[in-house]
Design a protein around this nucleic acid. Structure first.
Lengths: 356, 356
DNA sequence: GGAATTTGATAACGCGCGTTACTTGGAACG
DNA sequence: CGTTCCAAGTAACGCGCGTTATCAAATTCC
């Protein structure tokens, strides 16, 4: 038998699905009437009787509107695109959740496409442009662009064709609106918490000092100290790799540098992974948390913070809220409404656990 | 000014976008010719010259095909739906990544919709059905249904309208094909590794004994021991809550139960969080890892396993591979091809780090 | 009681594209 | 030279639905 004479059975059998026309026939009315009822236009004049007849027919036939056809006819798609390296590196996956939930509430769909901004010179160079291109082919009404960690990014040109909002990053060369965490306020609230617990000698385990997170959090710490009439002692700030090992090593340095009476009584670790390492350094020296040394982290990586012993008090990055706010901002933009500000700062709440 | 007289400016200005007709005019050919060239049909007879003229016009005008219209006309959508509570609880987010990557390779889009199987009697009851309904309205060609942890699930009826594949879960009442981790092989390889390192007294920190993960992993452990001529000593198996605290508590019990010479020299923790707690119990007793006690985990939760000190040797749950395999299986189903098996077991590889 | 208005509904067009059937000019053939 | 055939391309229909104009009957108004 030749190939062409045996078309794929499954595909051939697949029934057409019931359309508006079927509903119309079943109800004995025109398709227009059905359309009017289903999209319940206020100024359509359909008698209550035929209206229920139509609704009954919809039920009886199990009619399901065809979103694609609707989009084509109405020239609106109800879709947003989300371009993100989060798919690649699920560190900040809560951004997806926040955006997804909000989109669902707004009865919109999120088309998620992979990015690779992180290694824009690597083998995947161009993936991102292709992704945006694909999203535009789907006629998304707007774009969200999310990064795994707070930084400046370069968004491809093609993103300019529809409203675009950046999440957890900011436009390094343009004016695209963005949603970012308020790192400074976060640093402030962390140190305020330590001060409130009576600590005045606070060691700070810093990240790479040039990234926005480090700059902001350190500045916040400085502010909190200033309010208490204290100054930030540069000697008490040590940097390390943003890992548990880095935190361990940095904590060792700072703990061993001073005689006991001068030793800091609290450590502000600029991320939770480093706090995890600091825990080991502290415990190794026979010191207790928070009795001898209080520890406060940043990021609220649940898997770490909630499972360290004692559980880690930390400042949360508001990923979900940023995701939701991104969708809301995009909704405003696509509706032609003005947005509040080019850069929206989202609060980083303190999560009290047991390490302070 | 009345509202109706000032229609939304942004919406009004939004240009129509260039269509195939525009390309055709620009190239001086019919729209059909353009369609033939763009979907490069083999049996279309278009001269090389007009072909390039059309391609040039596409470039010049920046034409971008309308995926929705194409789907409508061709009756195929290139879309899969992914229903998952993972969006709600990002524990196994790598399933999304695996599926997403594979879908991207296959030039398909993943429409992700939230589920809430986990609290099907809670306030969100019905969310899942609504989600599937929405996906079907988008005319997805198939459905993926993913769970955060390996278990039996009940998939809504409506999922039967298109090919459906379950990931990290199995159909409790039907015959839907599923992709699940090979827990038993995982348990086996973990204990084999410990045996190979010379341990014969192995403590097992168990999960809730009724869940598939516990059943399978324990069975695998039993098999590995049997091969070595050993039996599983029920006294060496203790259960606890699947948390760090639960692991700590269980480890304490098992470590304190025996005099030193009878104490197990290795612990197989059935998940990484419990291993995290076990670490604390071990260190607290002045014992070293892996010198005095070797520890092996399960799940490979990166944030824990890669950052514990020493880094945790563990068995990985193949989330990404399961996601990819789900998409591949769905592709086979929608193409009408037979699938390999109703239930595909995916290998759980051992990740060597430093705790054995 | 005829004109104007309202109510209830429909015919018909277009959204952007895939696809089938058909047309045309020229080359090959006998 | 008439016929056949093929390369090259096009007209036209339909996918499922939103929307605008239009229409007939029922009601109101003067």
């Amino acid at each position: 038998m030749a190939k062409s004479t045996t078309p794929n059975k499954a595909a051939a059998v697949r029934q057409r699905g019931v359309t508006m026309n079927d509903v119309a026939k079943h109800a004995g009315v025109s398709r227009t009437a059905v359309s009017f009822v289903l999209s319940n236009r206020e100024n359509a004049s359909i008698s209550e009787e035929t209206r229920t007849r139509i609704n009954d027919a919809v039920q009886a036939l199990g009619y399901r509107p065809n979103a694609g056809a609707r989009a084509l006819a109405s020239q609106r798609s109800d879709w947003y695109g989300l371009v993100t390296e989060i798919v690649t590196a699920p560190f900040a996956v809560d951004i997806i959740k926040g955006a997804q939930d909000q989109a669902w509430l707004d009865r919109r769909f999120l088309l998620i496409a992979p990015s690779d901004q992180a290694d824009a010179v690597g083998p995947n160079k161009g993936l991102e442009d292709a992704a945006i291109e694909k999203l535009l082919e789907q006629r998304v009404e707007g774009l969200l662009y999310a990064a795994t960690f707070h930084r400046g990014v370069h968004v491809p040109q093609s993103a300019n064709e529809v409203p675009t909002v950046l999440i957890n990053c900011f436009d390094a060369d343009g004016k695209l609106p963005s949603i970012v965490p308020d790192e400074r306020a976060g640093g402030r609230v962390a140190v305020e918490r330590l001060l409130q617990a009576g600590h005045t000698r606070i060691g700070i385990i810093n990240l790479d000092p040039v990234i926005p997170a480090a700059v902001g959090r350190l500045e916040g710490a400085r502010e909190a100290l200033a309010v208490a009439g204290l100054e930030l002692d540069p000697e008490l700030v040590v940097s390390g790799y943003a890992t548990a090992d880095g935190g361990y090593e940095a904590a060792c340095r700072i703990l061993d540098r001073y005689p006991q009476q001068d030793r800091p009584t609290a450590l502000f670790c600029l991320n939770d992974r480093m706090a995890m390492g600091a825990y080991d350094a502290i415990k190794e020296r026979g010191l207790t948390i928070p009795g001898d040394i209080a520890v406060i982290g940043f990021d609220n990586q649940e898997l770490i913070a909630a499972y360290l012993r004692p559980k880690l008090t930390t400042v949360a990055l508001p990923f979900q809220k940023m995701g939701a706010l991104g969708v809301q901002t995009l909704a405003a933009l696509t509706a032609g409404q003005p947005i509040i500000a080019d850069q929206q700062l989202v609060d980083c709440p303190l999560l009290e656990r047991s390490s302070v």
